[in-house]
């Protein structure tokens, strides 16, 4: 597939064309705060609002594929059930490589065994224009996780090489979009491609504010030995069970299922809504029996899901992509997976 060069002015036209021709376009934008800019995905209405120089978004782009609340089925009370599947098309602009890895993992998890048509329909109707990271966030450790750069999982990948972007189309969909929306873009030269590689090489080692002292492939082995480690109780001692670490995580996908009835009491809908294994009642059953009553058991479960249980479903891939969002979201500062894995490494030395 092609590798094009888009000048910065040509880029504005490219984005404007997409905004004008496609329905739901979401891109990274700034929210200016006292401490500086914070970034978030949101509906994009002007090319000028797009900020591909961002470091990390507050919440991951997951919400466009697995919405915080989504209707699964509708029904008439006392009658039949009907599937509710969203077939709207959307384009996400500015997805970072680590978030792409998380999306690829969800694609696998929602399609393996029992095929989830709700997630998969949204996914297939979503076009992803990714971008290489231009600035490291305060807590990113994607380099440690091998997720700082990617070679697939996107339709188009943009890399800022200074005066221009290099755009790589990886799918037919991406190729067509590039041809249509950036008709004047020429092929990238060897020098452009080298500049692109330089950005990626830098990220491969430079997005590493917390350094994992082993390879990601060593994590399942560490956890196999660390189940009774003191680290769980130590860390969880100050856990609020607030679930922020679940909420901000691009790889967390647990959900609750709830019913809502309309005011008429005649019809209603069943939704799924994000849930979190750190929340106190996540594993409750009738009779007030809680299978993970203790904070440390819930805290440990999250780290085991990331580093041991989910990898078994993903051919060994670790379900933490090193975005660092949980690190920033956790008030008592205990959620950092690297700190836990490194401590286990120390203990097993």
């Amino acid at each position: 597939m092609s590798m094009k060069k888009i000048s910065k002015t040509g880029f504005g036209e490219f984005i404007t064309h997409i905004i004008n021709t496609d329905g739901n376009v979401y891109g990274v934008q700034a929210k200016t705060e006292a401490k500086g800019d914070r970034f978030a995905f949101g509906p994009l209405t002007s090319a000028d609002d797009l900020r591909l120089d961002y470091d990390v978004t507050l919440s991951p782009p997951k919400k466009y594929l697995l919405p915080p609340k989504e209707t699964l089925v509708k029904y008439e009370v006392g009658g039949g059930y009907e599937s509710s599947i969203c077939k709207c098309k959307s384009i996400l602009i500015g997805v970072h490589p680590y978030d792409l890895v998380a999306i690829k993992q969800m694609d696998e998890l929602f399609s393996q065994d029992e095929y989830d048509t709700h997630y998969m329909t949204r996914r297939r109707n979503t076009t992803i224009i990714a971008c290489d990271v231009a600035k490291a966030s305060p807590n990113v450790f994607a380099s440690s996780m091998g997720t700082a750069t990617v070679t697939d999982g996107y339709d188009i990948l943009l890399t800022d090489i200074g005066g221009a972007y290099v755009a790589h189309a990886a799918t037919e969909k991406g190729e067509a979009l590039l041809t249509e929306a950036a008709p004047s873009a020429g092929d990238a030269t060897e020098a452009d491609i080298a500049a692109r590689k330089a950005v990626q090489d830098k990220n491969d080692t430079g997005l590493n504010q917390h350094e994992l002292k082993c390879g990601p492939a060593d994590i399942p082995g560490l956890l196999e030995k660390g189940y009774d480690s003191p680290v769980w109780e130590e860390k969880a001692a100050t856990c609020y069970s607030c679930g922020s670490c679940n909420l901000t995580c691009p790889t967390c996908y647990c959900f609750d299922v709830q019913d809502d009835v309309a005011w008429s009491l005649k019809e209603g809908a069943r939704h799924r809504a994000w849930d979190g294994c750190l929340l106190e009642n996540f594993a409750n059953v009738a009779g007030d029996h809680n299978f993970r009553k203790k904070r440390e058991a819930r805290y440990r479960h999250r780290l085991y899901r990331k580093g041991s249980y989910i990898p078994k479903k993903l051919g060994g891939e670790i379900a933490c992509v090193g975005c660092g969002r949980c690190v920033g979201a956790c008030l008592p500062d205990i959620a950092n997976p690297v700190a836990v894995y490194n401590q286990l490494l120390e203990e097993t030395k």
Partner: peptide, 19 residues
């Protein structure tokens, strides 16, 4: 064994006991 269950199809995570 009983566990809390929501989806019944290995997605929602509620019934998980370790892996």
């Amino acid at each position: 064994l009983e566990r809390r269950m929501k989806c019944g199809v290995g997605k929602c995570g509620h019934c998980q006991m370790n892996g």
